[in-house]
Amino acid sequence: MKPSPFTYRRATSVADAIVLLAVAPDETAAIAGGQSLGPLLNLRMTTAGTLIDLAAISELRESRDLGDAVFIGAGVTHAEIEDGKVPDPSHGFMRRAAAKIAYRAIRCHGTIGGSVAMADPAADWPCILLALNATARIAGPQGERRLAMDDLLVAAYETNLAAGEIILGFEIPKLDDTARAASSKINRKTGAFADSLAVAVRQGARSRVTLGAASIRARILPQTSAALAQGESLEALRPLVASDVAALLAAPDPYLQNLHATNVMRTLAEVLGA
């Protein structure tokens, strides 16, 4: 279980990374924490002629308070979020969620940007950032652009990042003082990939409920989100959750339907204080 040969380059800045990635975009892969890419390389499920290491780029490690939002650099690790080392837009929600990602050793190296760029359908950050209505800042040969999470995620291991682009970080709107956010993960064992990952953010009209591990990418549950925004009760939400989940499943499956619906209802119960 050893990777195919590759050439390793350590990027020193975002500009440097863009240049390095531009040389042969199709044969080049960017690596940040490497906690998901590493296994894929070791298993030869993916190969790269050149591996561009983004971990040393200080710009990607920066986070700041933007007033009504917080910017978190793509290179910030799950452990840094867990440990409260970056500004928090979510009243502690992101810290709690980060602590539930895989294992500490993975959290010490895995990055928020890497997690989104990898776009595993069961991963935590795509689902959480989608619920928090984050916007990704992206750099590439054509300059910088911004993409809402919903537009960035495409399918399993597929995003709208063009060849040669990297994520700089995420602008995450601050939650209102009265807002409540919760996530619920059902998995086979502590630290294992989610079988169902539900996230609910309740803050009036900006309420949003997302679901991961149910389809090819993390998705907003549209009817549930709208009804939550309108202040509907938990019981009123139940049929909408069922309908939203059913729409996401590739094929009808009573077990998965019930699993995801149950999981979503749990996060809703939490944000509704029920």
Partner: peptide, 29 residues
């Protein structure tokens, strides 16, 4: 396991708990 799941290769890199199977030696330069 060589895919980050078993923890037998745990080491310390710059004070961080690290799976040595998921770091390339060149990354530790």
């Amino acid at each position: 396991c060589e895919h980050g799941a078993c923890g037998a290769c745990s080491v310390d890199v710059d004070g961080l708990l690290t799976r040595a199977c998921l770091k390339f030696a060149v990354q530790c330069d």
